[in-house]
């Protein structure tokens, strides 16, 4: 994007090589970034101080290095009961994220493949249904789904958390938009070479859909890692809690666990940040796909 010859402000006629304007504009984004990073930075500083201070004083920028200690993190990694609990949540979150990404992508790819590669009578109707499911916020289906999961005996199971969301309409939509632009001649070429319909799907089309997989896997992973409302309803036993649910249980009015809460919160952001920094491009592709085409 940066390398483009002209851009909209330039097109508006403001391209006067105005250095002052450039410094002002860049400075504005620097300031905005500073404001945005502020809460995380304050949280990071607080994670080096006793949790009791948080409950007594609230969160604010305190740059006094002399009062900082590594105690919260040492406690977090000490291997005691609290630490074990924290890493159990961490592990549960990792597992849930992994299963959820693999399951969602596999299912959504297949559905989108069917919707984009074939002409069949129900095609447009089914695609309309995909869009329709996006029109009802999950929160409205929360109660009946909760009741359904209980009656199916899936409460407190990972299947109960995953199954209702595995056919994610937005993911199907993204894959479908991506694949509808792929050349259909590849299918016929595959058929002439004697490949079956499923062989074509897995051996010919799957490899050229990789960029879509990259974008969607990151988006799904982030969603699964951060998801709380539905897992919180389904999981009942403390041994199954994910990181967001676990951290939420520490948010008590007594503040007796704020050491783990603040250090654990900061440590819990790290995996997402690393993934983001490595795959920033795919993040943005996945995020913006709906906005341009929809």
């Amino acid at each position: 994007m940066e390398s483009r010859k002209s851009s909209s402000l330039d097109k508006l006629g403001m391209n006067k090589k105005n250095k002052i304007l450039s410094i002002f504009a860049t400075g504005w984004f620097a300031l905005l970034s500073l404001i945005i990073v502020f809460p995380i930075f304050a949280g990071l500083l607080a994670s080096f101080r006793p949790g009791q201070e948080l409950i007594r004083k609230g969160l604010s920028i305190d740059l006094d290095v002399t009062t900082m200690t590594l105690n919260n993190y040492l406690y977090l990694f000490s291997g005691n009961a609290d630490s074990q609990k924290y890493f159990m949540w961490f592990k549960n979150s990792l597992m849930l994220t992994l299963i959820s990404v693999v399951g969602t992508l596999a299912v959504c790819y297949l559905v989108a493949y069917g919707l984009s590669m074939y002409e069949f009578p129900l095609r447009n109707f089914l695609f309309f249904l995909v869009i329709a499911t996006m029109m009802v916020p999950f929160e409205i289906l929360m109660l009946p789904l909760y009741k359904e999961v209980i009656s199916l005996n899936l409460i407190d199971t990972t299947s109960g958390v995953l199954l209702p969301g595995i056919c994610a309409a937005s993911t199907i939509f993204f894959f479908r938009q991506y694949m509808i632009g792929l050349p259909k001649e590849l299918l016929d070429a595959g058929r002439i070479d004697g490949a079956t319909e499923y062989g074509i799907c897995f051996k010919i089309m799957l490899p050229i859909t990789k960029p879509a997989f990259a974008a969607m896997s990151i988006l799904c992973a982030m969603g699964a890692w951060n998801n709380i409302l539905w897992p919180m309803l389904v999981y009942r036993s403390a041994s199954k809690f994910t990181l967001p649910i676990g951290l939420n249980t520490l948010l008590t009015p007594y503040g007796n666990n704020y050491d783990v809460l603040i250090a654990g919160s900061m440590f819990g952001i790290i995996p997402v940040f690393i993934v983001f920094l490595c795959f920033q491009k795919y993040f943005i592709d996945g995020m913006t796909a709906g906005a341009v085409k929809g």
Binding site: F29, A30, L32, S33, I36, V37, P39, I40, A42, G43, A46, L54, G58, L59, S60, M222, W225, N226, N227, I228, L243, P244, L247, N248, L251, L261, I262, S265, G268, I269, V272, F273, F276, L277, Q280, F283, I284
Partner: peptide
């Protein structure tokens, strides 16, 4: 700047909510 502005969307509502509650 784009990376910085995007950062908050990566944090879960639990972490951002906790930070804002304390702020």
């Amino acid at each position: 700047w784009k990376a910085f502005l995007y950062l908050p969307a990566l944090t879960s509502v639990v972490i951002s909510g906790t930070l804002f509650r304390l702020m």
